[in-house]
Simulated scan of single mutants.
Amino acid sequence: MTQVNFQRHRRLRSSATMRAMVKETYLHKEDLIYGLFVVEGQNIKREVPSMPGVWQLSLDHLEEEINEVVELGIPAVILFGIPIEKDAVGTGAYHDHGIIQEATRFIKERHPELLVIADTCLCEYTDHGHCGLVEGETILNDPSLDILARTAVSQAQAGADIIAPSNMMDGFVAAIRKGLDEAGFENIPIMSYGVKYASAYYGPFRDAADGAPQFGDRKTYQMDPANRLEAFREAESDINEGADMIIIKPALAYLDIIRDVRNNYNLPIIAYNVSGEYAMVKAAAQNGWIDEKSVVLESLLGMKRAGADMILTYHAKDVARWLEEK
C-alpha cells in the first residue's frame, strides 16, 4: 500500500464530534413555516385522510394548535382558507370576514409575535376551483388581477404579516404590490409562489383545501414540469414586479430549480415541501418501510443544501421536536 497514493476522506468522518465540526448544512426551527387549513363553522376538527396528522380546523379548535406551534418555536404559519359557500368570483377570498381574515385576527390577538402568512389565491373560494376568473373554460388573466389585489389588501387589513400569492396569473405580483402600496401597506412583504409547477404532487392538498378544479386542469397557468429555463423567467419577472421572497413548489423533484434560482438571485428562497411529498413519507412510515424521522430530516436538509433559506412543510411540528431532541 505504500506505493498507492489516494485521499483519506474518512479522516473527517471518524467520530460524531469530528463530523459535527465539518458539517456544512444545518436545519433550524427558524427555517420552518407550518401550513394550517382553517375552515368556516364551529366544532370542526377533521383529519385530512391523505395527510395523517394534518387537520381542517374551525376557529374554536385553532387556539390549541397555535399554542403548540408557538411552544415548539416555529416562527411562522401560512393559512389556507376553506369557506362554507363558494361562487364564481371567489367572494370569500376578499370578504372582510372571510375565513383567512378571521383566522388572522384570531391568531394575532393571541400571539402577535407569530408571523401570519396569507395564501392569496381564489381556488378555494371559487365554485369552479380555478385560481382566476373564468369565461367558459378559459381562465382569464387580467380580470383576475383586481380580485387578487383586493384579496391581498383585505388580508393585510386583517393583520397578515406576509402576503403569499399562489395563483400564477401573469402580472399578479405587480397588481398586488400596487394594491398594497395604495392601501398604505407598502411595508408588507410579498412571498410570491414565483416558480410553481403543474405538479401531480398536489393531490392531497386539494383534498385538504377542497380546491380541486371542476373542469380541466391548471396547466395553462402553472409551469410545465419539463422546463428549467422558464423558472428564470418567472422568478425574474416577479422580482422586478416587487416580490420580496420566492417560493419554489414542489421541492423534492425540483431541487435543481432551487439551486438554479439560488445561484442567480439573492433574495430569500422558500422550498415548499408539498402535500404529496408529505403523504408519501407518512404512508411509507406507517407501513414500516422507512424511518420517518431520518427520511424527513434528510429530505429537508437536501432542500437547505440546494439553496433554500426556509421550508414550508407539514412536517414542521415533528421537525421542531426532533431538532429539540438533538
Rank of each mutant, 00 (worst) to 15 (best):
A285Y: 04
A285L: 06
Q286L: 13
Q286G: 14
N287H: 14
N287I: 06
N287P: 03
N287F: 12
G288R: 08
G288M: 08
G288K: 08
W289D: 14
W289S: 14
W289Y: 15
I290S: 05
E292R: 13
E292D: 09
E292G: 10
E292W: 06
K293H: 10
K293A: 13
K293N: 09
K293L: 09
V295Y: 06
V295A: 14
V295I: 15
V295K: 06
V296R: 03
V296N: 01
V296Q: 03
V296G: 02
L297H: 06
L297T: 12
E298H: 09
S299G: 07
L300Q: 09
L300W: 02
L301F: 08
L301D: 07
L301R: 13
G302A: 07
G302M: 05
G302C: 06
G302W: 02
G302I: 09
M303V: 10
M303E: 13
M303S: 11
M303H: 10
K304P: 01
K304W: 02
K304G: 01
K304V: 04
R305P: 02
A306M: 04
A306P: 02
G307N: 08
G307Y: 05
A308W: 01
D309T: 03
D309E: 01
D309A: 04
D309F: 00
D309C: 05
D309I: 05
M310I: 00
M310T: 08
I311C: 06
I311M: 05
I311A: 05
I311Y: 01
L312I: 08
L312M: 10
L312F: 04
T313Q: 01
T313Y: 01
T313G: 04
Y314G: 08
Y314C: 00
H315P: 00
H315E: 09
A316C: 04
A316M: 01
A316I: 00
A316V: 00
A316Q: 02
A316S: 10
